[in-house]
Design a protein around this nucleic acid. Structure first.
Lengths: 246, 246
DNA sequence: ACGCAAAGCGTAGGCCATACGCAAACTGGT
DNA sequence: ACCAGTTTGCGTATGGCCTACGCTTTGCGT
């Protein structure tokens, strides 16, 4: 195991995996990586990813903008740190839980919570995850299928399926509520009603008419999420039964 | 039907839905909205979304940066136009195709193609779609389920499920190939092999060991996509059978 | 007490989006 | 042929952003 993960890789990775050299001498730090990352996450949570700038972050921390660069190689690096820290630890379950469906459901629901608390995560994900925080979630999801007869490739496929679904659902929810310029809840429906010409978009017009985009009469938005997730896991169940017979 | 869709809404929408006033007199335009949007799409395709700036776009079009603002209200507006134009028309099928699974599969595969040709689309989607281009795709997907006994809410849920899956798969593929600094195909696997400590990430370590992240020995990456899609559609099939019995 | 490593930060340069107003060019009417 | 009106193209300027570079400050180890 080399001391460095890679020379051309983001500096952040070497720090995240605990391969930063301990430093003894020198001025006592007033800033720390943890404080910076926590402040950046709070700023992004409160005012959105667009409002996160090095200058505003420094202002919030009471330091000069350039001071941040002593702890972070650049803005990209900072975002890697944020992506690692924000989700927190994944739900706990053993290596091969008896109830794969319950475990995976819990994983998905908690991940949805993470994305709703930190909507910027979805916008930020661009490279394959290589930090301990995200890999821990990935590992937990793979473990939830530990008791099934699926092979590793199929398990990974299932996990990606659920992951994509959760991300999409989170994006839908956050973009619908924080839509362009304080658009009210029903405004999207009203707009679609006007735009969905039945001649041009027959199915869409019928769907709007049926109230698909209106907020549910009863039952919260979580029920929609659970319903879609159940569809998805039904498919996984089919695959598991098929694998069990083979 | 009012002349304007909304006063606080992006200018782009009023243009997209053909409610811009025709202009007769005046200087003959050297620029046009179509040329601008086409150039912007080409620029984003070739150099990525980050390279798309008004200045670089103007340079490519041989005009001054500020000239663009005669045709586009701002960069956000331009991106709305790009989102509308880039996907092109969705696949054609009737209002209630006999083979929902085939139709929806075709829709998903073609949409994946769109996302792979224009990777920036996935990064750009933030608000619910309100332009004709995206609504046409949505309508097509809803039509693919026209022959099933699902109600409109369930159809919409299924379409979102497939949409999220396609987006996620596209993001995975594009971010894996164009990863940080020309990372080779196998580099991610190598890195994971090193980082996935079996004590800390037991399932992940086993998955890496099993070669899940290695490129397939035979069969292209499309087979992975089709396999995941099949899982997903199995779940939809279960829902359809259930609805048929009710 | 002293030197030096590390932290904090001031300056400056190069990008970026875009508000504003003026000059150029074309058309229709006289 | 000319002018008025209209629309396009664009020069200038402002304020934001990220960050390279080097200086000042600080406190530990000796």
């Amino acid at each position: 195991m080399p001391d460095d993960i890679g020379d051309e890789l983001p500096h952040a990775l070497n720090v995240l995996w605990g391969r930063a050299k301990p430093k003894g001498r020198g001025r006592t730090p007033a800033l720390s990586l943890e404080r910076i990352v926590a402040a950046a996450i709070a700023l992004a949570d409160e005012e959105g990813l667009a409002a996160l700038s090095m200058a505003r972050l420094a202002e919030r921390l009471g330091c000069a903008p350039m001071s941040l660069y002593r702890h972070v190689a650049g803005k990209d690096d900072l975002q890697l740190f944020m992506l690692d820290a924000a989700p927190g630890p994944p739900p706990e379950f053993g290596t091969a839980p008896a109830d794969w469906r319950g475990s995976l459901t819990r994983w998905a629901v908690e991940l949805l919570g993470v994305y709703l608390r930190h909507p910027w995560i979805v916008q930020l994900v661009s490279a394959p995850p290589m930090d301990p925080g995200q890999l821990a979630w990935l590992d937990a999801a793979l473990r939830s299928l530990g008791g099934t007869p699926l092979d590793w490739r199929a398990r990974f496929s299932v996990v990606m399926l659920v992951l994509h679904y959760v991300r999409g659902a989170a994006q839908l929810r956050t973009s619908a509520t924080a839509a362009p310029e304080e658009m009210a809840d029903g405004a999207y429906t009203a707009l679609l009603t006007e735009l969905a010409d039945p001649g041009r978009f027959p199915a869409l017009a019928r769907a709007v008419e049926a109230g698909v985009f209106a907020p549910h009469p009863e039952a919260g938005p979580d029920d929609d999420f659970r319903a879609g997730l159940d569809h998805l896991l039904d498919g996984v169940g089919v695959a598991i039964e098929r694998a069990a017979r083979a």
